[in-house]
Amino acid sequence: MLEIKGLEVCHGWVQALRGLSLQVSEGETLAVLGSNGAGKSTLLGALAGLYKIKKGDILLDGRSLSGKSPHYMVKEGISLVPERREIFNSLTVMDNLLLGAYHRYRSKKNEVIIDVENILNLFPALRGRENHPAGTLSGGLQQMLAIGRGLMARPKLLLLDEPSVGLAPLVVREIMSTLAELKKTGVTIILVEQNTAAALKVADRALVMERGSIVLSGCSREMMGDTRVQQAYLGRTRVVRPAAAL
């Protein structure tokens, strides 16, 4: 359903993606691994319309989406749950969720209300906190809210940027099992993770990025057995980034 062809994106002088190509099929969950600065967030941001595309193309169900703005991407069914969550701190949990459905709130209000209920069922921990300012929630709940807000757009393609970063193992497990549940609904997911083990568990397929290109890819089981992946991301040598200590 998604095809990326020779994608190049620059941040100023830094070329963050160097001719990256990949395909994702309907209902698939793809894990994107790689060290800091590999370009993982840039890839997701480009898919969400945040960055100008220098070269290459993004095709969703055969239609070109290159150069479109974020609100267009959301309408087309691509929803990004960004790095650091980026929730609306001083708005309530409920308002955050309702704003997630911005492009259809006015036309399909009833549907949106039902969707909020579904999100609260998916993340029962958010229930009872609907009227709390989102900024007062714990990190785990904020992450759940961010995912919930992303789902409120009813995406065909859900992009998740490091949802487990800075969270306690128990919370990570909860979020990952929710993702596994989400998979069953048929939504296509691209999951960027530093927590390689957790990501490989939910993903069907995984790829490793380095300096803006894909250096390795395969199905999750192969990747888990791959010595290079083990050394770099699963073993004792794994570098803990400062953000993980927050």
């Binding site: 319309g49 609100h71 959301v74 929803s79 960004p82 609306f88 701190n89 006015r106 409120m152």
Partner: peptide, 24 residues
């Protein structure tokens, strides 16, 4: 109002407002 909250959303976090589909 919903529109008012969308404006606040832009004020609080522009990137996130873009990502939920608010047309800047």
């Amino acid at each position: 109002t919903y529109t008012g909250k969308a404006v606040r959303a832009c004020v609080i976090n522009r990137t996130a407002a873009l990502l939920v589909g608010i047309n800047p």
